[in-house]
Simulated assay, not measured.
Amino acid sequence: MAINVRRSLPEDHAAILSLMDSARGVGLSDEERARRGFVQGQLTGELLDRFQEGPGIFVADADGDLAGFAITSEPGSLPPQHPAAAAVAAVTRAADGRDPGRLFLYGPVAVDERFQGRGVLTQLLTALSRALQDDFDLAVAFVETANERSLAVHRHYGMTEAARFEIGERAYVAFTFAPSAFAQGRS
């Protein structure tokens, strides 16, 4: 089965929202969610429209089925109380006065269970890195420390653990990566 990564279209929104809902891990125990991974946040069609106008939403299309998606956005595209804003602030503080360059936010990302283990995430990372490497220096992602699977995935790809931060009672790791490092593809 061939997988094609492309920028999303408005007609992809329903499938993206559906996959996002199924990737939340609702109904699972905290231990099972940590082991299987989960995504957070509430997406709407309006938010997807806004993200689509920014750096973009990238989808992995498997013969008409949505195999996965990766959302990218500009810092400041979400409210200041959102963990994304805290992640950017933590990365900026960790830079200790050095200019981190032009930033974009990476995530949320989800791969349909039917397609996991088939290189879909690698293809998404490679495609979005190729598309964004000329306009951005650094991607910023954040992962709740309770999400063991997502932490392991980010570490597997060699993303830098740039900072840690907390919001309320939740602890997060801010990861960074240079799109130029992924533009040629990694495993």
Rank of each mutant, 00 (worst) to 15 (best):
D21A: 11
D21R: 06
S22M: 02
S22P: 00
S22W: 00
R24T: 04
R24F: 00
R24M: 07
G25W: 00
G25N: 03
V26Q: 00
V26K: 07
L28T: 05
L28Q: 09
S29Y: 02
S29C: 08
S29K: 05
D30K: 15
D30P: 10
D30Y: 03
E31W: 02
E31Y: 01
E32T: 13
E32A: 15
E32I: 10
E32L: 14
R33H: 01
A34F: 10
R35N: 11
R35E: 15
G37R: 13
V39K: 03
V39P: 02
Q40Y: 02
Q40K: 12
G41R: 04
G41H: 08
G41T: 07
G41K: 04
G41A: 10
Q42Y: 10
Q42D: 15
Q42S: 13
L43P: 06
L43N: 06
T44Q: 13
T44F: 13
G45E: 14
G45A: 15
G45D: 12
E46G: 11
D49L: 11
D49I: 13
D49M: 13
R50C: 07
R50S: 14
F51V: 02
F51W: 08
Q52T: 15
Q52A: 15
Q52K: 05
E53W: 01
G54R: 06
P55A: 10
G56Y: 05
G56P: 02
G56V: 07
F58L: 08
F58R: 00
F58P: 00
V59R: 00
V59M: 05
A60Q: 04
A60L: 00
A60K: 05
A60N: 01
A62T: 02
D63V: 06
D63E: 15
D63K: 12
G64L: 07
G64A: 08
G64T: 09
G64F: 09
D65G: 06
L66F: 04
L66G: 06
G68V: 03
G68Q: 05
A70C: 10
A70G: 00
I71L: 15
I71C: 06
I71T: 05
I71D: 04
T72L: 09
E74F: 11
E74H: 12
P75Y: 09
P75Q: 14
P75A: 12
P75L: 12
P75W: 10
G76V: 13
G76Q: 07
G76P: 09
G76H: 11
S77C: 08
S77A: 13
L78T: 09
P79L: 10
P79H: 08
P80N: 01
P80S: 09
P80W: 01
Q81Y: 13
Q81H: 14
H82F: 08
H82D: 13
H82L: 01
P83I: 02
P83A: 03
A84Y: 07
A86S: 14
A86G: 08
A87S: 09
A87K: 02
A87R: 04
V88C: 11
V88S: 07
V88I: 10
A89G: 10
A89T: 12
A89L: 09
A89C: 01
A89M: 05
V91H: 08
